[in-house]
């Protein structure tokens, strides 16, 4: 198998292209996906390659983008609906939660809903309070929907292909500041597909378990480097999916490290860390030598001014501090 270093953006593009080539029923719809080429340039060239039937520009209408994807999927197509940023998914909340996530259940399995909603998340770009959320955890609250949060090019490719091939609806969340990140990705295997709902140990260690995903991988990786200089070995577990949530590797790691820190960009109330802490207590309480610690954004809307925006977000130093508190 040949591997090549590519960016997350390239990984996403190649996953989309391969799946559209594989299955005629797969098509893309959303704001600026066609003529513009995608606001993050993921679908650049797709309109020429696949035509306007399969690369469909929509008006700025998130309710009908999400809702018509549901109908098309129920009727047998496999839509990839792009919501430009996850902030706009709030507008489509009813279509996503009340319809996309539920039509399979409430009609007792008569319909399936193989929709992928691709969207971008994350703050840190001075976009102000309404454009800087990392709220993917909200969507993971609801049964019926999967939530993917890839943090590397390798994962982005294998997980997007998995999402497209799965018969369940998937909210596929990409981090807007990580699209240029590179990693080695198989390039000559059209069936390179990662499993749905599997977390991944990104860095082995024995002293503390850091549970994180996406942007948190970067803060945690930097923190782990700093901690290593002091002889502290952090194990970093990348959740990759917030639903299905695979915490088995976390429980196993806790039995070894006896300490857990959860790192994420979302807000502190009812966040990923809260769920992980509860489940670790339930499954591995006797192995804990310290309370589970959470590192997240501060409990404020994100401001415009860069210095206070960065103050509100996690960083490597905050992770280091949290780790030292549990050691």
């Amino acid at each position: 198998m040949t591997e090549k270093s590519i960016t997350i953006r390239e990984a996403l593009s190649s996953a989309l292209r391969e799946e559209m080539q594989r299955d005629e029923r797969v098509f893309i719809m959303g704001e600026e996906v066609g003529v513009w080429g995608g606001t993050y340039a993921v679908t650049r060239g797709f309109l020429d390659e696949f035509g306007a039937r399969r690369v469909r520009d929509t008006p700025i209408s998130e309710m009908v983008i999400a809702g018509s994807a549901v109908g098309a999927a129920m009727a047998g197509l496999r839509p990839i609906a792009e919501i430009m940023t996850i902030n706009f998914a709030f507008v489509a909340m009813d279509a996503i939660i009340n319809h996309m996530a539920k039509v399979h259940y409430m009609f007792n399995g008569q319909f399936t809903c193989p929709v992928v909603i691709r969207t971008t998340t994350g703050g840190g770009k001075q976009l102000g309070a309404t454009h800087s959320h990392a709220p993917e955890v909200i969507f993971a609250h609801f049964p019926g929907l999967y939530v993917a949060v890839p943090g590397t090019a390798y994962d982005a490719k294998g997980m997007l292909k998995a999402a497209i091939r799965d018969d369940n609806p998937v909210l596929f969340v990409e981090h807007s500041t990580m699209l240029q990140r590179r990693s080695a990705v198989p390039v000559d295997d059209a069936d390179f597909v990662l499993p749905v709902g599997k977390s991944d140990i990104k860095r082995p260690g024995k002293d503390v378990t850091i549970v994180t995903y996406q942007k948190g991988l970067e803060w945690s990786g930097q923190a782990a480097d700093l901690l290593a200089q002091e002889g502290i070995e952090a194990e970093i577990i990348d959740l990759r999916w917030l639903r299905p949530l695979d915490l088995e590797p976390v429980f196993e790691s806790v039995r070894k490290t006896n300490r857990v820190v959860v790192v994420e960009e979302s807000l502190p109330h009812f966040n990923v860390g809260a769920e992980v802490a509860a489940q670790v207590m339930d499954q591995a309480f006797d192995y804990l030598d310290a309370p589970v610690k959470r590192v997240s954004a501060m409990d404020v809307p994100l401001p415009y001014a860069s210095n206070i925006e960065m103050m509100a977000l996690p960083d490597a130093q905050k992770v280091v501090k949290a780790v030292k508190e549990v050691l």
């Binding site: 999400a66 018509s68 994807a69 109908g71 098309a72 129920m74 009727a75 197509l77 009813d94 319909f111």
Partner: peptide, 29 residues
């Protein structure tokens, strides 16, 4: 929430207006 896929009856929906985009999607198919 009655429906019968075999009769092309795509169901009854509880959120006012929530099924309108679904209709658009079925027509898109």
């Amino acid at each position: 929430h009655l429906a019968d896929r075999s009769r092309n009856f795509w169901g009854g929906y509880g959120i006012v207006g929530g099924h309108l985009p679904l209709a658009a999607g079925i027509a898109l198919k």
